[in-house]
Design a protein around this nucleic acid. Sequence first.
RNA 1: CGGGGCGUAGCACAGCCUGGUAGUGCGCUCGGUUUGGGACCGAGAGGUCGGAGGUUCGAAUCCUCUCGCCCCGACCA
Length: 582
Amino acid sequence: MRWSQYFIPTLREDPADAEVVSHKLLLRAGIIRQLSAGIYSYLPIGQRIALKVMQIVREEMNRIGGQEFYLPALHPAELWQESGRWSAIGDDMFRLKDRKGADMCLGMTHEEVITSIARNEIRSYKQLPQVWYQIQIKFRDEPRPKSGLMRLRTFIMKDAYSFDVDWEGLDRSFKDQREAYKRIFTRCGIEFSIVEASSGSMGGSESNEFVAKTDAGEDLIASCSNCEYAANLEKASSRLSKIEDDAGPDAPEEFSTPAVRTIEDLARTPYLVAANRQIKSLVYFATIDGEPRPVLALLRGDHQLHDVKFGDALGSTATRPAQPEEIRELLGASAGSLGGVGAKATSRKSNQQLLIIADLGLKGRRNMTTGANKDDHHIRGVDIERDIEVDQWADLRTVSSGEPCPRCDTGTLEVFRAMEIGHIFKLGTKYSESMGANVLTADGKQVPIIMGCYGIGVERIITAAIEQNNDSDGIIWPKSITPFDVVVTITNIKNEELRNAGEQLYKDLQHAGLEVLLDDRDERAGVKFKDADLVGIPYRITIGKKIADEMVELFDRRAKQSEDVKLDDVVARVQELALSAQ
RNA sequence: CGGGGCGUAGCACAGCCUGGUAGUGCGCUCGGUUUGGGACCGAGAGGUCGGAGGUUCGAAUCCUCUCGCCCCGACCA
């Protein structure tokens, strides 16, 4: 392509609406333009990038036997009513009526559609397994679209579905997808982790989330430096070093602690109670079975409560910290002087049923110090299992960077921000059962097909690639998904010698099978360099004064280094570089 | 949905508090000089100030409503 004719509207300044790096660069490099919140147009180089990503996905899907479909984006409500999701999904689904008044929706995913094909056409176990996929637009009316292409209302997704006659088959299909995903993200130049995830409202037994490390991400992930362990902070755990407690007194002792309100206060002189020898006591109200109940959560003094783990452990739909008045009514003291000893008895005075849940990190601890449920007083010598009526033990604490891996002996955990780029689920029979997709087994029994579903967000790959590959000058595309392999920059288009050399090189590079952008614009060299850096094309060949000696300059965008190369050698050199690994 | 911010030229912004009929930089057009890291000089084009209603002799500016966008939170197949 000739830059002079090609539509790449670069922006010199950061657009006001963009916050995260990838969003700014996507706009500045002329890749996308916004149409509405969470809705973007792909401009020509954006389309080239998206096609490259989709092609990699397609190749890897085909490699594991996937068959490409193209399914409708517009669905009749009946399908979704069959699976039960018409009512289970709320405002996230775009709904509309056709001219006859029939309910329709825009597909946010395609389990229903694919299952309806399977149930109509697949009769026998002999037709299985099948792996079907498509690369298609999805619609989700996100409550909060954000960060450019990160959280969209319309986006491109590769969604694959596997159909097996038994669970062993599903295991194989799942593993195939897992391996394909690793290859896809690796080929796209993305640093990723695989985390255990909950399958959420998708249903099913097992799921893996693929995440890309980026500060713009919405998830917090704990990942082991040594082994493969990685988990969302909502589920992550770590190994605690054992603490040997001295045997304490036979019964807890109350002591006076005027003005002590925090763990830190008690850790200082004159008390000197180390934070890991204190019990942190937090009062919450948790909605359990539709009823709000007061809950006392106990953790080691230096640990932080993770409210998702807390809610999960209680089976609660909503939790909130108690108000100061509520705490006083319940336990007769203010936050800062609370504790589990005798808390149940105290709470009964206010006619409330207090639930005590303790973090596993406190199990077996003795001779601890905690609040006395009396302002300005604490209790020491607390043996948790002896002195506190714990209703439930659970993993409640937030894992921090540097803690030992729960799975291997030598690794430590690193906690970082990440964004979801893919998710694979073992669905099981959720859709095949509700929608009646059955097959006959070898021994003549009718069984529901065992399904899996596997998604990849194309825009998420693009976003992650930019987030992980940029510098102050712009994007640095991984070679596999760059819009062009190389840009030929003619420093002065009015100079005939330079122009001719550039035109010839442009042709030669194309003949060598490279995707070439020829910067033949009548602009100053500096402008062209800035634009080339911004757009992020991996290699730039600069045609300048050195052409008198049959030399050109080859600039490596990532290394930010250039070498002088003979004009005759530069095609082979670029070919070699562009086709090498990232 | 709760909290916050912002809508003025293609882009980034000033003007609003204290009403008097719109400005700066970049970009764009034309002419000239320049030509290896976002040039310079000169001359231009370009805006119903998001929309509606109101107050006023007069509204970008004050009031009411409304639409849109961004950020934080809730939510997130």
